[in-house]
Design a protein around this nucleic acid. Structure first.
Lengths: 347, 347
DNA sequence: AAACGTTATTTGATCGTTCAACTTAGTGAT
DNA sequence: ATCACTAAGTTGAACGATCAAATAACGTTT
């Protein structure tokens, strides 16, 4: 049984190749009667157009590239897993496929763009983890390669909502602000923040949210603002410092940091009735140890990214174009804070 | 600046298309002198062969498919993340790329094979989570589609080492056996096992390892063998039962189950000096709560899978063919068992 | 110097689509 | 009856590579 192609199908039907091609790509050009006959034959024969041939002619592969970041921290990594998943599903729905590539650094990533564009004919890219002075977005814009990023473009001067490329992001600051307000409502008057060194965009944004909530409540931030590199041990050490500065609760920029902080808090203070340590990303680890955490609607983000990218690629300016820039609001997953002493997270 | 193609490059060099093609695909056919001149020109012009054209002619895409399983359990899911990562890197080294697709069920996966083979011209597939009576391997074998699986073919009658398709797996039984022996050496005489319902291949294998260790030491397994569906709450409940049956330690088929068990154990027994609950997969959660766990060499597995698959696809029977069937041995990550009461996992 | 074998290089055909230009038929207005 | 226009369908060329077969170049043998 030979492989069915446009030509073989056309012959057996007594029509021309192009008519079949039209049935597939521009049905309105074909008389309904003929169309139905062809459609039936397509289903019958199980014909599938060859991606290679189509790609050669149209210069579109329906393939999007996404980089696998090196696994630095198993804890935070899980969010990428969820993201990738949602991305794959959304892409599939829009008729696109995802091609993975791995790059150790941003430079490396840029270097691979060229290869991937030519060699694999990728139609566009999904970026994650944008930061200040991101060379990747600059390169892609310069070379007019379609892409969308999870993460807004971070700049001190420009409004992200005017940026040239589409992006979706989660309003981390709104999340930490909400978390901090909860702690304030619970009666805390000295609330610390454990975050990353300044300059990371997302990290600064989360810090700002905490600071806003404190200011609104007229509470001090001095001595309570710690900046460390991500990781559980670093979080634990930082927690000792904020406690020394008088803090009775703390908001963290990641679940890794929060997990460390939680261990310090439990060894210094008895387990309280409401959260005193709040993390970020709502990872499985947080759920496991009963750590409250700020949850990103990452599935929504993924879906929207694909939608925007697909829209850009289709060139279809008319039909309901999705927001080019979208800032989603995270939610707070509140948990009983010391499960290993009870059954907290079993519910 | 027009895109460089074989023809444009050939013209500017005064040689024929085919010569350039040969420099790339069969350098030995070209006179060293010419070759060097062409190679220089290639580098100069930044020429990259078009994947589409090549694919159309050779019917090979250098693309491998891998399915994204639905995220069931964030805890165990992280291992897939690591696997995917290693797979991507290994594939890249061998000149292959990975294309993701998502399928909710095995049936769905099989259905997508056809599409992916035609539409995306995938060269082969990587399978994960093989089980008894797996329809996917049957379909792929029948249709002569190259693939390799992470997970041996599970059958009561046939020796996996004679199977027709290549696979890599981790000897889970060896892992649980080692873990159980450790508990025995530590003085435990009633050691339970919390695993999945019979029939899952990998699950039964892990149970068998535990049982072997007990038998070798002349210890009883009665009443201590629990079968539940995966999850933290289920693990906690099962732990109550094994404790009721007299167990002072337990080995689990997953970190989810182990995490539940750990919570029960800590509420019944004081924290011991050596592990009394041992999980499987060495997930970040295990590391976070100081849970000992059996660690799969998953990066090695991924690398080998790609190597075998690449070898099959190259058709190169001669050059050092990698083992068609490979069983790797896991290691035991031993941890201090109650970090939240101290600084156990900060080291 | 003719005949030969090997190596180096070129040429024509092909993979399976889509684009662009073209033909044919049908409809309605002038 | 002529013309203009739209609709439906056809055909040749092109996308950019590789395969297979043909040719050119070159040193060896007779």
């Amino acid at each position: 049984m030979a492989k069915t192609t446009l030509v073989s199908l056309a012959e057996s039907l007594g029509v021309s190749r192009q008519t079949i091609s039209n049935v597939i790509n521009a049905p309105h050009r074909v008389k309904p009667e003929t169309r139905e006959r062809v459609e039936h034959a397509i289903a019958e024969s199980g014909y599938r157009p060859s991606a290679a041939a189509r790609q050669l002619r149209t210069r579109r592969s329906m393939n999007l590239g996404i980089r696998m970041m090196p696994v630095v921290d198993g804890i935070n990594g899980s969010i990428l897993d969820r993201f990738l998943h949602a991305l794959t599903e959304a892409a599939q729905e829009e008729g696109y496929r995802l091609t993975l590539f791995s790059a150790a650094t941003d430079d490396d990533e840029v270097r691979q763009y060229e290869d991937l564009l030519n060699v694999a004919d990728l139609d566009g890219f999904v970026l994650t983890g944008t930061h200040h002075g991101d060379q990747r977005t600059a390169w892609l814009l310069e070379n007019e390669v379609p892409f969308a990023s999870f993460g807004r473009p971070w700049s001190d001067t420009e409004d992200p909502f005017t940026s040239l490329h589409p992006w979706v992001d989660v309003d981390g600051g709104a999340g930490t602000e909400q978390a901090t307000r909860l702690l304030i409502d619970q009666g805390h008057t000295a609330i610390g923040f454990i975050g990353w060194p300044a300059g990371s965009g997302a990290g600064d944004d989360r810090r700002d949210g905490w600071r806003r909530a404190l200011q609104a409540a007229g509470l001090p931030a001095d001595q309570l603002d710690l900046r460390v590199f991500d990781g559980v041990p670093a979080g634990a050490r930082a927690a000792e410092q904020v406690i020394a500065a008088g803090a009775t609760a703390v908001v963290c920029a990641s679940d890794s940091l929060a997990l460390g902080a939680l261990s310090t808090f439990r060894s210094r203070y008895p387990a309280p009735a409401s959260p005193d340590v709040i993390g970020f990303d709502d990872t499985p680890v947080a759920a496991a140890v009963g750590l409250s955490s700020i949850a990103q609607p990452i599935e929504d983000a993924a879906r929207h990214i694909i939608r925007v990218l697909a829209h850009t690629l289709s060139g279809d300016e008319a039909s309901g174009r999705p927001d080019k820039h979208l800032l989603l609001t995270p939610t707070l997953a509140q948990r009983f804070p010391h499960p290993l002493a009870g059954d907290g997270w079993l519910a």
